[in-house]
Design a protein around this nucleic acid. Structure first.
Length: 471
RNA sequence: GGAGAGGUGGCCGAGUGGUUUAAGGCGAUGGUCUUGAAAACCAUUGUACGGUUUUCCGUACCGCAGGUUCGAAUCCUGUCCUCUCCGCCA
């Protein structure tokens, strides 16, 4: 979520930034937000002033009722006079009459009960008005909040401005492209032939876009996960094991909701969802907490399955395991100060590249342009591995700095050193890495003419094999 | 899954409808005293929003959401979580 104060103070600048995203709907929401914000503050100020008057009158009422030193005749007189003052909207006079600080003329013809009934009726009228005010304010605030939740993050000034992913800037590839003396096969042929991927049985169990890994396939995935986790751990990330189900609020906190509501699986009749990425859980680890600057940066790494319904991608990448409903991913995540977050983004992206290099698969880094940043990133790099069988670059990692966009939603703050004024942390996420596409790249890059697959050196200790061949 | 008991500030804990501050303690920070420290004493103490501007003032927050009431930490309903016991279970 953006800072409402920023939108209020620099509306034109914010709109310029949003314009870089080529998101017309978001632009319109900024105007709506500005309008609602003015309305909201006007009604709040007015209603809160009235509430202050009522609170004070009610305290005086308590005092009048409970004053044991005052006899009933005087109480009746004061109640009556205060009710009259309230009819004239003279709150100060009413308060003074009730709390005993103003003189009152006794009138013994008054019934205490009736006088108090009048006073209560007068107070109720004030209360009704306040209730209306708060109800209206709440209505406006809900609408304001809804608009804020749909506004994407602003791009970092260093991000180049283009509309679509075709303009993403690719850095020169690293690693060696292999020259094949035969036609390289796609993984959806290699996997079943080796007996390590079983598409049919995956579909039988759970439907399309589900698959089964068997034997060396299952073990290869497990080896990759261990390798990824160990690599991140040596870079200083704390390994965490997380729930694979989270509350809806966590998805709002990580800025998945409301925009991507239909990409996640929900448990029937429950406010619980299967995580689409570990990022959702880690973002909320320190939800509603105020950290100390000395604790930052906090670096976490977690392996979780990721569940994605992929409704929006129906018909795309239907062959193989490139786009599936359930896959394994190791996620790196950092909570940092605003001053260091962009340096940390470079370092973290470097770690993702190190993993690719370690696996000896050709890869490249993409600098993502403004129009392709997605909803919550201020700046983003993708890492792609080359897959000769499908003849395409496969996205195996995505590293983003969301600045305070997620932190503001999840309320993750810190005290800067020597200060007691809270600030939002910056949060960064980066895959390191996701398994299915890495397995694709390994199979397709390392396939031999006889259909066997050589295992990268770094994985051999994890897998306990140098080659996977037809058994 | 069933029954019961609970949820109050950074922590412990009092508070069962009002009589202007959520008592008290611990911790933390600052100060006095001291050669220094400890002890003692004094003071301060959260978050958000709004109005002011360098100081205040107001509103909200006692798990969360509703409700009753002139007035709710306190009463009612729902919900989440924790603990105890029972059942089931890797």
């Amino acid at each position: 979520m953006l800072d409402i104060a920023l939108i209020r103070e620099k509306p034109d600048w914010v709109k310029e930034q949003i314009a870089k995203l080529y998101d017309e709907a978001a632009l319109a929401r900024i105007d709506k937000v500005l309008e609602l914000d003015v309305e909201r503050r006007a009604i709040r100020t007015k209603t809160e002033t009235a509430q202050a008057a009522r609170n004070s009158l009610n305290r005086s009422m308590g005092k009048l009722r409970g004053d044991k030193a005052m006899d009933d005749g005087e109480k009746a007189a004061r109640a009556h006079a205060a009710a009259c003052a309230l009819q004239r909207q003279d709150f100060d006079a009413a308060r003074a009459l009730m709390d005993g600080s103003a003189p009152v003329k006794r009138d013994d013809s008054l019934q205490a009960g009736a006088a108090f009934d009048d006073l209560i009726a007068a107070l109720r009228q004030i209360g009704d008005k306040i209730d209306d005010g708060f109800a209206k304010a709440k209505e406006i605030e809900i609408e304001l909040e809804d608009n804020m939740l749909w506004i994407p993050n602003l791009p970092h000034h260093g991000v180049s401005v283009h509309e679509s992913e075709e303009s993403n800037k690719a850095h020169p590839p690293k690693g060696e492209f292999r020259e094949f003396d035969f036609e390289p096969k796609p993984h959806w042929e290699l996997g079943p032939a080796l007996g390590i991927i079983d598409f049919e049985r995956g579909v039988k169990l759970a439907g399309s876009r589900f698959f089964v890994l068997k034997g060396w396939g299952a073990r290869l995935q497990r080896a990759l996960i261990s390798f990824f986790l160990d690599t991140a751990r040596t870079k200083g990330f704390d390994e965490v094991y997380l729930p694979y189900l989270v509350y809806g609020d966590m998805l709002y906190g990580a800025a998945q909701f409301p925009k991507f509501q239909d990409t996640v699986y929900q448990l029937e009749g429950e406010d619980r969802f299967l995580v689409p990425t570990a990022e959702v859980a880690i973002t909320n680890l320190h939800r509603d907490e105020i950290l100390e600057e000395a604790d930052l940066p906090l670096s976490y790494v977690a392996h979780t399955p990721c569940f994605r319904s992929e409704k929006a991608s129906a018909g795309r990448d239907v062959r193989g395991i490139k786009r599936v409903h359930q896959f394994e991913k190791v996620e790196m995540y950092k909570f940092t100060t605003p001053e260091t977050s962009y340096d940390e983004l470079e370092t973290m992206t470097g770690y993702a590249e190190d993993i690719c290099a370690g696996l000896e698969i050709p890869f490249r880094r993409l600098e993502i342009v403004s129009g392709d940043l997605g909803f919550s990133a201020s700046k983003k790099y993708d890492i792609e591995m080359w897959s000769p069988g499908c003849a395409e670059w496969l996205e195996v990692s995505s590293c983003s700095n969301t600045e305070a966009f997620q932190a503001r939603r999840a309320m993750v703050r810190y005290y800067p050193a020597g200060s007691r004024k809270t600030q939002f942390v910056h949060t960064l996420n980066g895959s390191g890495l996701a398994t299915p596409r890495v397995m694709i790249a390994i199979m397709e890059n390392n396939q031999q003419a006889d259909g066997s697959v050589l295992i990268p050196q770094v994985l051999r200790p994890y897998l306990g094999a140098e080659v996977i061949s037809v058994s």
